[in-house]
Design a protein around this nucleic acid. Structure first.
Lengths: 217, 217
DNA sequence: CTGCTTATTGACCATCCGGTCAGTAACTCC
DNA sequence: GGAGTTACTGACCGGATGGTCAATAAGCAG
């Protein structure tokens, strides 16, 4: 099914640097489809086009494979947003709009990211390492970006001064994007609230809610 | 473990009307802790203080037990909010504040509700019935409440007229409450963003973002 | 080509788990 | 108290699954 392009047909020796990501990709698919408990090591092997035993040559157990899988996916997640943030010069409200478009677009396009999020939601309680990883490497990074935008807006006089360091505000600003993703996981593409509508409403609410009164237009 | 109060010590015959909720409660605990695939029927039986076979006297399979478990929990979920909505007379912004306090308080207090939500997130893709149930009985009800508040505010001249029927806005308004719940599931009580801070920031953002401008821009 | 290293295999094991069933006893009705 | 109903038990089964290991062969150095 998945193995059209990269599955070896016969026994084919590969250096670990090539085999490892192949296994991790297969594992992400399997964990995503079945959850941790439901995933079968034999199915991971089959998706990767290798024998089950080989997985244990690279990962000591199912749990080790799971942790490695989650970690391997978060690398490129925030890079784009952070690049955007660093390179932006214009008004904060445009930056906000651009980041919002990026966030909601990702929710629509990137199924792997939703899947990853669901895995974290599902398994964090059982794997404290995973919860810590989410908190430090994902949530903190995301709220950091939101806070930076808020502060930039205040510094430029676009936003009300109070919003610069209001506790909980970054999380509130972020939440609808994430919930759009969650709803799409639960209900599927057809029945979930439309991300574009949410994005427009979200942006409208934020701009009216954050903006300093009598904003120059 | 859980069976301090209602677990029978020896064979004790109970009418189905008493046994069924006992099994459902045990099942909720087990499903919540392990997910669908990870839950063991023997553990459900043990939590309920009965033999495994008895479960199959009441439910035909693991899946039937799961569906019944989810359905049994949603009854009282929205009743309070809807009662509040129907009985309110004052300004919409006070109604909004009251509903917000209620929502965030529930997230803090009611662990079962968070658990239920996670079960839905986790398993909806595999059980289309469950997704439909969530859409119709939970999300639609919740957005309905939010929309009613928005319309009431517009009707009273408190909110900008555009917000009465802006597509996606009800979902955006709702999202932070739900994300507060999700974060609490993932990170636990200690490390999740504080619901009180989120509530205050959320309310502040909403009131500024929804309110009709007093002075023309 | 020869021999060494190690990536790779697939049969195998022990265990666990959903589901069954034949038997048992608690409760009810007469 | 006797008979009938049915809630209840727990041993058991078949299949699935995480994990092991000895054999195998691909690639490489000489």
């Amino acid at each position: 099914m998945n193995s059209g392009s990269d599955a070896p047909q016969a026994r084919r020796r590969l250096p670990p640097a090539a085999r490892t990501p192949q296994i991790l990709r297969a594992a992400l698919e399997e964990f995503a489809e079945r959850g941790y408990a439901g995933a079968r090591m034999a199915a991971v092997a089959s998706r990767a086009g290798i024998a089950k035993g080989l997985i244990y040559h690279y990962f000591s157990s199912k749990e080790a494979l799971f942790q490695a899988t989650v970690r391997a996916c978060t690398q490129p997640l925030f890079e784009e947003a952070e690049r955007h943030l660093a390179g932006h010069a214009g008004p904060a409200r445009e930056l906000l709009g651009a980041l919002m478009r990026m966030g909601y677009a990702r929710i629509s396009a990137d199924r792997q990211e939703r899947i990853l999020f669901r895995l974290i939601i599902t398994e964090a309680e059982r794997f404290p390492d995973l919860a810590r990883f989410y908190r430090e490497e994902m949530l903190a990074r995301a709220t950091g970006i939101a806070r930076a935008v808020l502060r930039a807006g205040v510094a430029a006089g676009e936003f009300r001064p109070e919003v610069a360091d209001m506790p909980g505000l970054a999380e509130v600003v972020l939440a609808p994007v994430l919930m759009a993703s969650v709803w799409r996981m639960i209900l599927g593409e057809g029945d979930a609230p439309a991300p574009e509508a949410m994005r427009e409403a979200h942006l409208d609410l934020l701009l009216h809610g954050l903006e300093a009164p009598r904003a120059p237009r």
